[in-house]
Design a protein around this nucleic acid. Structure first.
Lengths: 235, 235
DNA sequence: CAGTGGTCTAGACCACCCT
DNA sequence: GGGTGGTCTAGACCACTGT
């Protein structure tokens, strides 16, 4: 149920509710969501509010509206663009796949008189007990900002969840470069690739809303990872 | 001005108007757009309609709203990301470089009973009489939608400008895939590259606002072309 | 035809920012 | 305090889809 006195806007509450119902499987792929009129009655809120919630779900690619028919659940495609960050786990669940993370390296080092944590993780998706490795993530995090970060085990803990919940730091945007590379033998070995196809490498900085740098990172993408983009064209 | 009897929704009309004003430089980077109240008076439409228009501009990355302050023009983010389309020329001028286009192939062909134009162009930047080739663009365009398109010379004519001004067709967004490849000898030859570094290849479809496909395209990027992204992180 | 989403109006109250 | 955007209500009419 929704709480009209909560500080969280009604449309956000409704959006989260519908999203969790979709992700939990209460509504399945190609199901129709309740119509806007039904939702009005059910939650006693206006259609405008409902449409705002659905519009954002549509933007996230979870839902598709068709005039005269209804609002369909749409888990396929669209959101493959989200590479890592936290979209990784969500994406996995949608496709009945399990996100797998293996910590390859974890070490602290000094640079310019400050301590940093270097974290190398192999990330992949598991379905039917077959694991497909997708990326090798290398993160560099400042330990003065995140004390004791090196004491955590990251194989089961989301880095960003930890930053948010323990260090109250909210990653907001990333500035990244992308380039094609020939992988090193180590990379192909880690990603369990036979073919020595070229790989994608992206690297850059993750910052908070106020542009404080919180992470330097590099991501090596396996060819299994399909990059999709939508780009608006400016006149 | 807006036309309330037009079949085009008011918010779309307003969105296009504001967008063209931004891109024509009537509003500049970091300028404030007129406030929602001002726009209400100016165009005699409701705030809901105005907010819908602005929301879509926000989604396109042209504009940013700040509570209590106003709506700012923000061209930065999108501009760096823009690879080709017409951002190419803008980008060039900014750096005191001249955009160069060389038509490599131009031929019509039949497929599924329809005629198409295949256009292959080499694009680069010139400064101090040195040309650096950046991309090889291959476009496929339907001739039934663009009659006589094959009669134009594209070395000095912008394809998109032609589509807009002659065929009244507005490219709006592109859905693209990106992958690293090993180039063919022909590619390295055309791009005048000595080193056989891996290249980036992107391919996909360009559509109008109403999702009508107008161009299939492939772009091969030279390593001289640096890809930069800004990605917002969603929770 | 009834039901659905798409657009739009005319208000209201609030939280935020600046002076 | 006066202006800004953020949320929400309670309606209305329309275009599209199915039967």
């Amino acid at each position: 149920m929704l709480n009209k006195d909560d500080v969280i806007p009604l449309y956000v509450q409704l959006k989260r509710l519908l999203r969790s119902q979709i992700l939990n499987g209460e509504f399945k792929e190609m199901d129709l969501l309740p119509s806007e009129t039904q939702l009005m009655k059910q939650y006693q809120i206006t259609r405008t509010t409902i449409r705002k919630a659905i519009a954002e779900l549509k933007q996230e690619g979870l839902v598709q509206q068709v005039h005269g028919k209804g609002t369909y659940v749409r888990l396929r495609e669209t959101k493959d663009t989200v590479w890592n960050f936290q979209g990784f786990s969500d994406l996995a669940h949608l496709q009945n796949q399990k996100p797998i993370t293996k910590v390859l390296e974890k070490e602290t080092y000094q640079k310019d008189g400050s301590s940093f944590l270097k974290l190398v993780r192999l990330r992949g998706l598991q379905s039917d007990n077959i694991t497909t490795w997708m990326t090798i993530d290398t993160s560099h995090l400042p330990l003065n900002r995140f004390p004791d970060l090196d004491t955590y085990d990251f194989s089961n803990t989301s880095l960003y969840k930890l930053l948010r919940e323990t260090y109250n730091t909210y990653p907001h945007h990333a500035n990244l470069n992308i380039e094609p590379i020939l992988g090193t033998p180590l990379m192909y070995d880690r990603l369990e690739l036979e073919e020595k196809k070229p790989l994608l490498r992206s690297f850059g900085v993750v910052s908070t809303e106020s542009n404080i740098e919180i992470e330097h990172l590099e991501i090596i993408y396996s060819p299994h990872f399909k990059f999709k983009f939508s780009q608006y064209i400016n006149y």
